[in-house]
């Protein structure tokens, strides 16, 4: 294990924050107080956390409709996110964006994205900015297995190879795009293999293993920073919840999610790995658990108590209001 115990604790805090954030949203959403649609990231925490672990604030990520985990991993303010999801004025986007559009440009977070396949083309733009300015920052795009089939994604990969852009295409294969299985919708035997065919190194990793993802991400990020061009990672995991909150999930075998929670939980795997290594004690993790819980509690109660936007906000942030 190449990480220090402080680093391991940092990784754990991020993963636990994402898990707690999402499980809490699952419960809060059931009260009917969250407007619209939320897509939960629980089950995939190791991927966002490991990929963003070595990124700096000035590096960029582009996310998906399932963006809460990416946002937290990139350092977005958890309270600001919660406020945004509840549609509050003090939210990260002033309540104008909601769950599917959480963005925080000060933290290099180019936005969750409600257009599937939206991130890779934006990420190559951020990568071009880096290349032109020579600032050694990198750009990462997150895309699902379903999104990996989108034309924009293929175009982005080819462009990145042609222009040797400092970016990493991360594909999170959670087995489904909405109700359709990846085994049906992804024609190639692997998403990583298809990315490699564009002319870049591509690795397939177990996305429930933080360390496997981290090794792959570190290599890709280093390559990009050194001006050697793009690379891709396919990380396999599962989503613990439905496509969106409220999804009856009839396309899944009845016991599938329960089994996955038992056998493919990245968080309990990480706990086991780090405590067995002796670098971290269970007590340290429990302390983090309590702190995270308190943070999420206060984020939720803060969001519930906060004011919605003012009606005049409808006509702000546009260049011209009619």
């Amino acid at each position: 294990m190449q990480l220090t115990s402080d680093e391991l604790l940092r990784a754990y805090r991020t993963m636990k924050s994402i898990r707690e954030f999402e499980e809490r949203l699952h419960a809060e959403n059931a009260t009917g107080d969250i407007p619209g649609f939320i897509h939960l990231y629980a089950g995939q925490e190791a991927i966002a956390t490991a990929v963003c672990f070595d990124l700096g604030t000035r590096d960029h990520i582009g996310s998906t409709h399932r963006g809460h985990g990416h946002s937290i991993a990139k350092g977005c303010d958890i309270r600001g996110m919660m406020l945004e999801i509840f549609g509050r004025r003090a939210g990260l986007c002033g309540g104008k964006g909601g769950s599917m559009h959480i963005a925080d440009l000060d933290h290099g977070m180019l936005g969750a994205n409600a257009i599937v396949g939206g991130a890779p083309i934006l990420a190559i733009g951020a990568a071009l900015t880096s290349k032109v300015r020579g600032d050694r920052t990198v750009a990462i795009s997150f895309t699902g297995d379903g999104g990996s089939n989108q034309g924009t994604v293929f175009e982005a990969m080819n462009m990145a190879v042609v222009l040797k852009l400092p970016c990493v295409f991360v594909f999170e294969n959670n087995g489904y795009g909405e109700a359709t299985g990846a085994s049906y919708a992804v024609g190639a035997p692997s998403i990583a293999g298809r990315a490699a065919a564009f002319g870049m190194p591509a690795t397939a990793v177990d996305g429930t293993d933080f360390f496997a993802v981290h090794d792959a991400a570190r290599a890709g990020i280093a390559r990009a920073r050194n001006g050697e061009g793009p690379s891709a990672i396919e990380a396999t995991a599962v989503r613990f919840h439905g496509h969106f909150e409220g999804d009856a999930q009839r396309y899944r075998a009845r016991d599938e999610t329960a089994n996955c929670r038992r056998s493919m939980d990245c968080l309990s795997r990480f706990r086991g790995q780090v405590t067995q290594s002796g670098l971290v004690s269970p007590g340290q993790l429990e302390l983090i658990d309590a702190e995270v819980l308190a943070l999420i509690d206060s984020a939720v109660s803060g969001a519930r108590a906060a004011a919605p936007p003012a009606i005049d906000d409808l006509l702000t942030d546009v260049y011209l209001a009619y």
Binding site: T180, G181, R250, Y251
Partner: peptide
Amino acid sequence: GEDVAGGAGGTGEVDAYGGP
């Protein structure tokens, strides 16, 4: 279209969505 049946390649019903 996408998920006009909904469930292809899954472990459950093939007509899980019947359109989004």
